[in-house]
Amino acid sequence: MSQVKLNSNFIVLDALQTATPVPLTPDIYQELDTRFGNFSGCFLVAEYAFSADWPSWEMHPHGDETLYLIAGAASLHLYADGLERQIEFDTPGSFVIIPKGSWHTAKVKASCTMLFITPGEGTVNGPDPRSRNA
């Protein structure tokens, strides 16, 4: 296999520990669900660059997500079981583990790049979960 850039491809790690590079396309998430059986038992390895706050919150019901800070800084906001946490994610080379079932988002403090290792099955995206309990 030739060298591939992570910012233009994802890597899917399946339940058999096979790593499959997948080029980014406009329909990447639908393609991943179809191609990898709704992502059951799979992890997605991806790199994202952010210059603005995340537009929504997300939650992964089937496993912990690991975020690795490559550059920049962000404030991570987590919400689970009625409890809120804020983590200053501002040391490149550090990582944070987002517990399974925790809603989370990020407020960008300085343009940043992160590596994600995400249990993709059942991922939910939506508005601020705190507003659902009001």
Rank of each mutant, 00 (worst) to 15 (best):
Q30R: 14
S56F: 15
S75N: 15
L83C: 13
T34M: 01
T113F: 00
V124F: 04
L69S: 01
A74F: 03
V96L: 05
G126W: 15
G37I: 05
G101Q: 08
A49V: 02
V12T: 06
A106P: 02
N7V: 10
D53Y: 05
F36C: 05
F43E: 14
T20N: 01
W57V: 02
D81R: 02
P119Y: 07
S2P: 13
P129Y: 13
G63H: 03
T91G: 01
T91W: 09
C112E: 04
N133D: 10
D14M: 04
F50T: 11
A15P: 00
A46S: 14
A15S: 15
D27W: 05
E88I: 06
S40R: 15
F36G: 11
N133R: 15
A46G: 15
W57N: 03
P92D: 10
S56T: 09
V45N: 13
A106G: 05
Q86H: 13
A15W: 04
V12P: 02
K5A: 15
T66K: 10
T34V: 09
T66G: 05
M1P: 10
E47K: 03
C42V: 10
G122T: 07
L13V: 14
T113E: 11
S51Y: 10
L6Q: 04
S94W: 03
G122K: 02
D33V: 09
D27S: 09
L32I: 07
L76Y: 01
P21D: 07
G120P: 02
G41R: 11
I11P: 08
G120D: 04
P119D: 10
S111A: 15
